[in-house]
Amino acid sequence: MLTLLFDGLAYGMLLFVLSCGLAVTLGLMNFINLAHGAFAMAGGYVTVLMTNRWGVPFLLTLPIAFMVTAIAGGLLEKALYCRLYDKTHLDQVLFSIGLVFIAVAGVDYLMGSQQQILNLPDFLRGRFTVGGIGIGVYRAFLVVVCGLLAIALQLILAHTRFGSRLRASVDDRRVARGVGIRVNVIFAVTFAIGSGLAGLGGALGAEILGLDPTFPLKFMVYFLIVVSVGGTSSMTGPLVASILLGVADVLGKYYVPSLGGFIIYIVLVAVLVLRPHGLFSRAA
């Protein structure tokens, strides 16, 4: 039971890293980006390619996965996304579905449609026991890495100049421009970091979530749920939502396998009906 809880925790933390970028673009910048999972997939493939084919150490591939997807995200933002901030949600939905199609077909073409297996280094395999709880080494590694990331993010958003500029730009673009904030740059950097984090999440999660070209479609709903359930007033909401979702999903699939597939949707619909603006948003 506790082992399962820990697995759920690790899974949830992973979901958080995957979706926190979306929490910012969707939640704060109000851009419905269904293609967020495509960046995660890109990160996953970067890591798999580098470790499996070129023998780069796994740990070293993680920052590279982050960088590659961040750069890709930044370029796409400058080239395409920035034109859609002012368009309707329907336009944004269609645009990002288009991106997903491209990503799915493109990866299928380049890498094939089979599931990719990541060769983890030996020191991250196996289990250890603490107080009678069996814990996977890799799961523990995930919890530590993702936990640190979550703390770092919260600090950056709440206490740095970049964080306050981002919040100002989101609140009112014109006013922010008026006081000399370079809103376009802030948005581009934010988008790039969000994509990078998704890429990092994809790299970390390749082992647990599985990696094949349909990844963006399969996990799109999870990311959206984290954001819509968690709300966006701080990073805490999405974090708590991710962990709850992770634990519920793992426990659900273990104890009631027949229901496991739709527990998350039932949670989603229930939350949206009761709190249309998310569980942790400020009272509307």
Binding site: R83, L84, K87, L94, F95, G98, L99, V100, I102
Partner: peptide, 9 residues
């Protein structure tokens, strides 16, 4: 997908 993007833009 490419067409859809061009279309929206």
């Amino acid at each position: 997908g490419a067409l859809l993007i061009a279309f929206v833009i």
